[in-house]
Nucleic acid binder design. Structure first.
Lengths: 346, 346
DNA sequence: TTGAAAGCGTTACCAG
DNA sequence: CTGGTAACGCTTTCAA
């Protein structure tokens, strides 16, 4: 006999026990419970009533075995020292539940997804993968491709076989540059995140291009690793520069770095934004703290998750839908960390 | 025929296909793969070799159906605006993977676990629940109790049928009070988190009791809701008090609130720690940021998760192990937000 | 040491 | 509209 002798009193209901109690077939119960239109209203009512009364919960694992769909989405989170990913996760939990999908938390952190973890994708028959930031290892990507598991990257444009949803980082970078130009700034610096990530690259590109359009070049480009500490180190470097070579506007490509920059500048005796303006990107909640008040581009997190799940569900069970990359426009949030023009342009 | 016509080329291996290729029985493959000692070394080698070559991954869901164990742990996170829970989650992901357990992310946020979500526990046959902070709804708790699913609460002493692992909040509160007394402080205030949570209550109790032992009473007790904003509001209130009624030491029972307090005090023109000392609890990474440098009690997160998983695994599959509450000692972290005695006592 | 077969709970197909 | 039955992939008991 298979099956562990779970606790004795624990006689859990199944479609079979329900069917017996009602004097119908198991298949009828199964159909009734999932609203198959062929079942008579009367029968369905009876089945639903008994199921509710007994607190019946279908065994999803058995269902998966028979149907091929687990309702499981693998979630892989980027470095969660960046609150942006935490907000993304929170939103994903809420929206996945609303769509009757469950999240299998595969990975959280800066590192790559380990090959061993990738096995889990197969073992648990996940219907799809939601990846934030960390690139899938090529091993994991191959597994997904071979087994036809759709992959959606959030906040990252994919190199591999995958769909993606992201904020339009290029436009956002442009918006920030335009804002700073309007504020009369002249000497610019940028603090990159991970210099390989599409996110960081695009933001920088938009920013630099807009400046270039106005005849401005700059070469102060530092890598900050998308961490507070990285931003802080960069800020300290700027604070220690001779006054005449200091930038008067700094773009940190992630709010969390911008916060580090602000702290370092202030500790160095530099006023923000009076001496130097600082702008960030992401729109994390902490950026609004009064000690920072970071001017930023707010990523549309709810919409990103929603569209991301759309992309995913559209590809579950078929291999005919081609990969797709969706860019959503972020919103400029004006706060106190950046000087504004005396007369704000529209 | 059951099963969706997954993609055609996608002929995924099973124990049966492996068995056929080797000319042995499926049961032999199954046994070999799990190291059943009855299988000859030679046969096992052959099986393992082929499995590796074909990239075979067992279908855990089918295994669950047969064995009763899913390897799935339901994870329910507290309000993640508090980075403490994020650190806890990160640690849980790492340690669960190391034990070959997977985390099903059920809930994240301040609210209670919804009844609908509780159904998921059953549907996915989770082996156990790891709950941080948010109390399980009584409905969910009943489900776990009836179906013999062990529950471990982290950072929270349970009211219901559950085991628990937490920092010794009472002792931590005492430690902080002792430190502040040593620093010569005389007028105290406390900012509570959620006033119903055991965590907040115990920290307050330890703090107040130690002061009482030194003949000191205080009645400045504010609810801060365990958020930055709550701490900020409380801090502003203190800043606006007449100087002679202001406290000279504030204990915010969570670091995230302490950060809000510090910001509000400084904006109000009060120096920290020169005018007022502020201490927190949790030891979150952000508390170490140079702008805050919060003196705090560091919770032993890794140990908490590790022991928490111990408690859980010990109770999976049996109902004979009684519930257990484990308290771990936190570590006092001295930083710059609190004045120290001129001669620091040991 | 290995094989055969039953069973886990569900869904899907084919009859009726 | 409903019933019966096979099948999903694995583990486990029983027999050899």
């Amino acid at each position: 006999m298979a099956g562990l002798p779970r606790d004795s009193g624990d006689a859990r209901d199944t479609v079979v026990t329900l069917a017996r109690s009602l004097g119908v077939a198991a298949s009828t119960v199964s159909r009734a419970l999932r609203g198959d239109p062929r079942i008579s209203t009367k029968t369905r009512r009876r089945v639903e009533a008994l199921a509710a009364e007994r607190g019946y919960a279908p065994n999803v694992l058995a269902r998966t075995l028979a149907s091929g769909h687990s309702g499981l989405i693998a979630l892989s989170l980027g470095p969660i020292s960046n609150p942006f990913y935490v907000e993304l996760m929170q939103e994903a939990v809420i929206q996945a539940a609303a769509r009757d999908l469950r999240l299998l938390l595969l990975h959280a952190g800066a590192g790559p997804i380990e090959d061993q973890t990738a096995q889990t994708l197969l073992q648990y028959q996940v219907d799809g993968c939601l990846i934030t930031s960390a690139e899938l290892s090529s091993h994991a990507a191959r597994i997904c491709a071979v087994h036809n598991v759709p992959v959606v990257m959030v906040n990252r444009v994919p190199k591999l076989h995958a769909s993606a949803i992201a904020c339009d980082n290029f436009l956002g970078g442009q918006d920030l540059a335009r804002l700073l130009l309007g504020g009369g700034h002249q000497r610019f610096a940028i603090i990159r995140g991970n210099p390989d990530s599409s996110t960081s690259i695009e933001r920088e590109r938009g920013f630099a291009e807009m400046l270039k359009n106005h005849g401005i070049d700059f070469d102060l480009r530092i890598n900050g690793g998308s961490t507070y500490e990285g931003g802080f180190a960069a800020g300290r470097m700027f604070a220690e520069m001779p006054r005449d070579r200091q930038p008067d506007a700094i773009f940190a490509v992630a709010d969390i770095m911008a916060m580090g920059v602000v702290d370092a500048l202030r500790i160095g005796g530099i006023r923000v934004p009076d001496d130097i303006s600082v702008v960030g990107f992401d729109g994390i909640a902490q950026g609004a703290w009064p000690a920072y008040a970071i001017t930023s581009v707010q990523q549309p997190i709810a919409a990103m998750v929603s569209r991301g799940l759309d992309l995913l569900t559209a590809r579950i069970g078929t291999s005919t839908v081609p990969d797709e990359v969706v860019l959503l426009r972020g919103e400029l949030i004006l706060r106190r960390s950046a000087r504004l023009p005396v007369r704000m342009a529209a």
